[in-house]
Design a protein around this nucleic acid. Sequence first.
DNA 1: TTTGCTTTTGAACAATTGTTCATTAACCAC
DNA 2: GTGGTTAATGAACAATTGTTCAAAAGCAAA
Lengths: 199, 199
Amino acid sequence: MARTTGSHSDITGPRVRAAALKLFAQDGYAAVSMRAIAAEVGVQAGALYNYTPDKQTLLFDLMQGHMDVLLAQMPQGDGQEPLEALKAFVTFHLQYHAGRPDEVFIAYMELRNLSDENFARIEALRRSYEDRLEHILQAGRAAGLFRIHDTKIVALAIIAMLTGVNTWFRAGGRLSLDEVVAQYWDMVRNAVGAGELPR
Amino acid sequence: MARTTGSHSDITGPRVRAAALKLFAQDGYAAVSMRAIAAEVGVQAGALYNYTPDKQTLLFDLMQGHMDVLLAQMPQGDGQEPLEALKAFVTFHLQYHAGRPDEVFIAYMELRNLSDENFARIEALRRSYEDRLEHILQAGRAAGLFRIHDTKIVALAIIAMLTGVNTWFRAGGRLSLDEVVAQYWDMVRNAVGAGELPR
DNA sequence: TTTGCTTTTGAACAATTGTTCATTAACCAC
DNA sequence: GTGGTTAATGAACAATTGTTCAAAAGCAAA
């Protein structure tokens, strides 16, 4: 046999990426064989190499795609006041991450399986994301709105807290996403010392 | 050749666990071969099976050992008031985790490489740890000290925030551990709505 | 219908995997 | 020293790994 009826790169290509995403998230990059990905697509292993030069690039492309969209879609916050910008960041982060659990999981679980060069590229994108949050925090502190000390630490702490949601949140579960967003926004606002006045 | 001069199970045993710990943390369970562990110890692969029935058990024992010590050493907080108990928890968590980066890393990165049975056991230990924090939060809310809504979410958020420290903290770096603890305690206390009064 | 392009197969490759076990040497109490 | 116990070797195993490639078959425009 050779080419199969109905085969098209426009169809197979996305299916290869989808299968890799699903399996990498499920079992981990190192534990997923190219044959397993091929089986998920319904194809032989050799066919995958029409869509990626190698397994490493397949992982890298998934991670880079995720980070690119994350950075492109995140709120810009131009001219917004710091508290509003922070709220927008928190809301965006939770909503974006809740909608893409597999991408998120891979993006921070499989960092060590990247080659040195690829790791550096993803790390740069990640840092850029963190920096944008830190800028909001610096602006808020400068305006006397946030009572925080080290903006770098606070930025990392907030992101860790928010990203942790993905370990337990499931759409259709006990809490709606809006409820989750409301509670996390409460905590973040309080954590930066911008909680409600009455006590 | 056979038994080597100076070989003793009291020495080799701990070295096997130490090598596995180091390599699993560095490269991931699936990416580390038994031969790589053996090479780190300075022994042939076959010798490892004097110390573990198989690779899976080696991973499980490391994780279980970590969780057992974590639960044994964590503050009990008997009769302590909630704010003090929370502070003790935060301090303990940060100090314990900062001192054992490899164990911590493995304990939450390699969960998916456990067999179903082993996963359930580790998960139970983890939940027990989370529950102890949640009890503190419930007591604080009942006493009117904490202004929080869902104690389960707050517990998970706090743990995620604290555990995230391990991704960047290095002893001897820009910040001392005490400074880190102080800043995280500030954030946690504020997050639960028990911040300082003056505003 | 022919032609050229696209897409997949399936076999082959060298390397590596976890694990077993007969064999052998070092250790240690007597 | 002797003998039993302990601890390692090193070869062997079947299975699986990522990747390559000639061959073949479907597709689409002429």
